[in-house]
Nucleic acid binder design. Structure first.
Lengths: 167, 167
DNA sequence: CAAGATTGAATGGTCAATCTTC
DNA sequence: GAAGATTGACCATTCAATCTTG
């Protein structure tokens, strides 16, 4: 049986050193926030992505990449990776597909011969704009129709703390 | 060129019928909440899953399935699907893998000959418990260390609205 | 030898059938 | 004919190399 699961005897932790000052067990409120975060993101993201794809458009990550490239000029995979929380190998293949579809253009990097540069094409700009006409209203449906303005602002404030540094 | 992208001329929308009373464009606060939701979930989930997998455990979905089965007795794929927001075909293969690893057991459903039942095994219960010893503290790190108790409760309340009905 | 980026092979997810039972 | 569930074929992600330049 078993397969991808560590043996009962050796949970693979080098040692139960108790090193970090990390929380031992999360409080009820923290667990509740965790569960809701997962559920809410799944529900909202699922609904929005379904709407966008039902209109015949590519996945939402394409939108994110196009938006970053439109705002930030040509970017290195390295920088896109940092902004969008992508894995490097993942981004590499995503850019391949987007280039094959004519939405981005890849060129060698002038000052660092290791790197490459990705730039948005005119077709890419048009695609991003057309996607937004479905994407935006879908966000309105998924989020705006469930929170008033004050709640949305407060939610944004609290969520921001989660990507920030620890207290 | 182009490939998975609808042609410029025909965005694939049957008609711009303006049918639903849906939001036309989301407000700034709503877009901010959307962006933060995506970012925060990505950051928190990524950190927690890395911790769990670094300890040699399977993906977090395994935990979710095991927990539901431990709480709810044997369940039909149908019910698991509803509780966990899984696609049906996806769940089917996940249960296959978990059964192959000896963590769940699949049996035919007595009263509905179409359905099947999934039950957690003793090894599954042990796995879930061992996972929690890493999972729980990781949630504490990712969420508890960034919000106080009141903020966590408020965040949970707001997120709950997002999986609920529209205003 | 580290950083940036890519690739092969294996795993996991997705869409569109399909099969069975209600 | 619809609900519950699975499967085949295809697409995307993942891990562990690998290759190149700083």
């Amino acid at each position: 049986m078993s397969d991808a699961v560590p043996s009962e005897a050796a949970p693979s932790e080098p040692a139960p050193s108790e090193a970090a000052p990390s929380e031992a067990a999360p409080s009820e409120a923290v667990v509740a926030a965790w569960v809701r975060l997962s559920r809410a993101q799944g529900a909202a993201f699922g609904a929005v992505e379904r709407a966008v794809r039902a209109a015949g458009f590519p996945r939402l990550e394409w939108y994110d990449v196009l938006l970053e490239l439109e705002r930030g000029g040509p970017l290195r995979p390295r920088d896109l990776q940092a902004r969008l929380l992508f894995a490097q190998y993942n981004l590499s293949r995503l850019l391949d597909r987007m280039a094959a579809a004519g939405m981005v253009e890849r060129t060698p990097c002038p000052d660092d011969q290791r790197g490459s540069l990705a730039a948005i094409t005119p077709a890419g700009r048009r695609l991003r704009r057309r996607m937004w006409r479905v994407y935006g209203p879908a966000i309105g449906e998924a989020v705006g129709a469930r929170l008033d303005e004050g709640e949305a602002a407060e939610l944004a404030r609290l969520l921001d703390k989660l990507s920030g540094p620890a207290r």
